[in-house]
Each structure stands twice: as structure tokens, then as C-alpha cells.
Design a protein around this nucleic acid. Structure first.
Lengths: 258, 258
DNA sequence: GACCTTAGCGGCTGC
DNA sequence: GCAGCCGTTAAGGTC
């Protein structure tokens, strides 16, 4: 590990270079400005910021606020530090897409680099796919006679979350985890139209399943003859205990399956 | 500033607490696992990771790879560190939406906290709005007779990027900065239909302007009687010099306007 | 590789 | 506050 507090810029250059060459993690707090040219152009004037260079070569520049970086480069970039007079210039290059980031570092309060390799797996439950699965397993939330047929069925025009039957009719279900908006209604419309055309039939219903729906979306939906079904997503404001039980259950099931 | 290398966990607790209380930046590299409960549920097993707590209270947990954090909490969270036996537990709470993040820290290689306040402004050019402006100012990229009427008409009939006329007809233009897909076609369709209905007219054309278009999207577009116009976005693979000129020009114009 | 989708999307703008 | 939508969107899956 290498670490310096309020270092000279040539020391910073060395630490950054070593970190990058060894594919270590580099963290730097200092005063610098940033220029980006690539998919867009941006100019960020000088200020105190946090620079992170990860082992995979991606670069993050963070402000004092917010979850997202104010500037960044994706993995696989080439990184080069050069001391020009009173400024340490770090140039980050990517090909495909061709883009370039230049940092003009004036002052550094801390910099360090260290070997860094994350292991460990992230497991998430509560996605939209989980919601479709919930409907597939509890078809009565759509209607008494709804019989699900397929889940996440791929078509040329996107994939249908749940497809099923209701008596003589087909039913296409589009799920939204949160309040459904216009685009969800249009997705549903697209799937229903394509399904009708592909099968040469007309008895296809469309259902939008979501915990709630915007006013405009509801109007559009009913204008087109579709219907809305209120369905709570798998993880909507459920209490501590339930969550714990669900998580344990999920993890257990997952482990026994593998 | 406070900084420690391979500290004891009680020292870590103190540094984190001081940093959070003072609304400083906190950076920590160590071995820990993470549990999240809120909009979804996730479990991240133990591994070496980077923790950042920003002055605004948002929390980022980064892996050795990728631009995005593997776990995070948005600003305004309450943060509490507690030492339980051999583990330092940091609990982060947010209300609205109610969510909770728990870190189980086992080992720390570096931790520091420091005052941190970013100033400086980010200016970006090359967005979709810039593309609409480009079309508005160079209407011939749509067609010889195209006469733009309004730009980013964001309220009346939806967010129409560019609205214009072509002889007797109205033309609705939807822009995409990158290869246009199905959703872009649907947006266009929605705007055209809305516009027709609002005006009670039928002579409305729809044009999708983008550097390229997917095969399916093109089929859908033509099926519905709309057309595609290849338009390069403002910043597509342009050379160094051009970029510099554009940026200077843009900045200059912007400054003289203000 | 093209294509389509979701995301604990984030963030912004307009009402 | 809601609603709609862009993003240097990113990341993941299927065909």
C-alpha cells in the first residue's frame, strides 16, 4: 500500500502510476477540474472532489453530493499521468466508443493505492421478474378464470411478462413494479397487437398489472379496451419480520435448488 | 482530518462517527458484507470493498469493478455505527421510501474523513435537446420543404421534440441520439395521435430522426406510415479539433448570453 | 453481435 | 407533490 497526506504533485503522480500499473484501487481527494469529450462534451471547473480509479480501469469523479459520479469513464480505459508545471494532468482514454477524460489536478489532500479484489455475490429479490412469477403462481390475482401459460415469453417485439388464457380468450399481462405510466400501456398494446397478428386471432385481452396507475395511463388503457389490475409487487412496504422470512425462504429455496 | 491505516474497529467507529457528525467525507477500504431492505431485498456476502459516505448523507459501496455502486443509499439518511463483538455494524436508515442498509465490517485497511465541499459547475453539450435544436436550425436535414414551428413543445401535446410543417401537412419529429428502438417509434406514434386528436385533423406526418434504427423498429415505423430520417447527433465521432471549436463556440455563446 | 428490457434506476423539468 | 422522460444511462438476457 502507498499513502500520502498533502503530498507534492510528483509524489501523487508516482502513486497513481503505481496503482494503475498494478491494477490496484486508487483513491484521491483533491482540487481539480475535468474535461470530457466523447459521447458528449463536458467541462467541469475546478473544485474539491473525490477521484477513484478501480482495478478494472474505470474512473469515477465524485462531488460532495449524490449517488452518481459527476464524471466517469467505463472500464478498460488507459490512464496516463503527466506533470506539467504546477498541474498534474491525468488523461484517460477509451476506444469504442472513443472518449477521453482529462483531469487537471492542482492540489491533493489525500491519495492512496492498495491491492483490492472484491469477492462475494449479490443476491437481490423483488424485481419485476419476481412479480411476474408471483402472478404466474397466483393466477387468481388477475381473475378467477385466468390460467397462466407462459412466463417471460420472448417475442420479436419484446417479451411478454405473463401469457395466459381466460375461457376462450388469450390474456397478455404486462407487469410494472411501481405506478404504471404511459409507456407501460404502450408496451401492452404492442404485445397484444403483435400477438393477435402473429396468431391471426382477435380474442386477446390485455391486462396491466401494477400497484397503481397514472390517470393518463388509465385513460389510454381503457380507451384501447384493456384493463388494469391492481397487484402489489413482491416487496411493497412490507414489515421487518415478513422481509426476514421472505429472504430466508428465498435463500433456502435457492440453495436447495442448486 | 482523521486517518488511520489498519486500525482497530473501535478506532474506525470513532472516525466514522466524527465524519458523519461533521458532515465530512468518509472513505473506508475494508472487508465487509451488506444487507439491504427496502425497495427490494439484497444480500451481499463479505468481501473487500470501498465505502464512501458523503457530506449529504448518501452512502456508496463499491466493488473492484464497474461505474455503479453495488449497494447504496440516497442522501438524507441517518447513519449509526455500533461495535458488536468482533464486528462493526453500520446501520443506514432512510424514511420515504423506508429503506435500510446494514454493513457488517470485519476488517479495515484504510479509513479517513475530511472536510469536503465541491464547488464548480458542470456544463454539458450534446444532449437530445441539442439534437432537436440542430434540426430546428437546419430543417433541411428532415426534408427540403420542412419548416420547423416549435421546439421541445413540452406541454401541449406531449413532449414533441420538433414540430413543423411540410406544405399542407404537419410534421412531428422525434429525435433519438443513438440507434432508435421500438420505444422511440411508440413515442412518435403517441405524439402524432395526440396531435391529430387535439387539432381534429388528419394530415400529420411522423418522422423519427436518429443516427440509425433497429430492424424491428423500422418495420413498425413503416407499418404505421411514419418515416425514418438519418440524422447524426451533434457529437458523433467528431475529431479533436472540431470538438474544441464547438466547445469554445458553445461556451462563448453561453457566456455572452448571460 | 443485434436487439430489447429492466433498474432498489437517478435526475430533471413542468405543472 | 405527481408525471413524463432523458441519460456520456448501465447491465443483463435472448435470439
Amino acid at each position: 500500500m502507498m499513502l500520502r497526506v498533502t503530498p507534492e504533485l510528483n509524489e501523487v503522480k508516482d502513486i497513481v502510476s503505481v496503482g494503475v500499473r498494478n491494477k490496484w484501487l486508487v483513491v484521491l481527494v483533491g482540487v481539480f477540474g475535468v474535461n470530457y469529450k466523447g459521447r458528449a462534451i463536458s467541462e467541469l471547473s475546478c473544485g474539491e472532489r473525490l477521484l477513484i480509479i478501480k482495478p478494472d480501469g474505470c474512473v469515477l469523479i465524485h462531488n460532495s453530493e449524490g449517488v452518481n459520479p459527476i464524471n466517469w469513464m467505463r472500464e478498460g480505459s488507459s490512464i496516463n499521468a503527466k506533470l506539467d508545471e504546477e498541474v498534474l494532468n491525468i488523461k484517460v482514454l477509451n476506444i469504442n466508443p472513443r472518449e477521453e477524460l482529462v483531469l487537471r489536478i492542482q492540489k491533493v489532500s489525500v491519495v492512496f493505492t492498495n491491492g483490492f479484489s472484491s469477492v462475494g455475490e449479490l443476491r437481490v429479490i423483488g424485481s419485476e421478474a419476481d412479480m411476474a412469477r408471483k402472478i404466474y403462481e397466483n393466477p387468481s390475482v388477475i381473475s378467477k378464470n385466468f390460467k397462466p401459460v407462459s412466463l417471460e415469453e420472448q417475442t420479436k417485439y419484446g417479451f411478454i411478462d405473463v401469457l395466459g388464457c381466460e375461457g376462450e380468450d388469450y390474456v397478455v399481462v404486462e407487469c410494472k413494479r411501481y405506478r404504471a405510466g404511459l409507456s407501460g400501456v404502450q408496451q401492452l398494446r404492442r404485445y397484444v397487437e403483435k400477438f393477435k397478428k402473429a396468431r391471426g386471432i382477435n380474442n386477446v385481452k390485455g391486462v396491466l398489472a401494477a400497484p397503481s396507475i397514472t390517470k393518463n395511463a388509465f385513460k389510454m388503457l381503457t380507451d384501447w379496451g384493456f384493463s388494469y389490475k391492481r397487484v402489489e409487487p413482491p416487496m411493497h412496504l412490507i414489515g421487518e419480520k415478513t422481509v426476514q422470512e421472505k429472504l430466508s425462504k428465498f435463500l433456502h429455496e435457492n440453495e436447495t435448488k442448486n
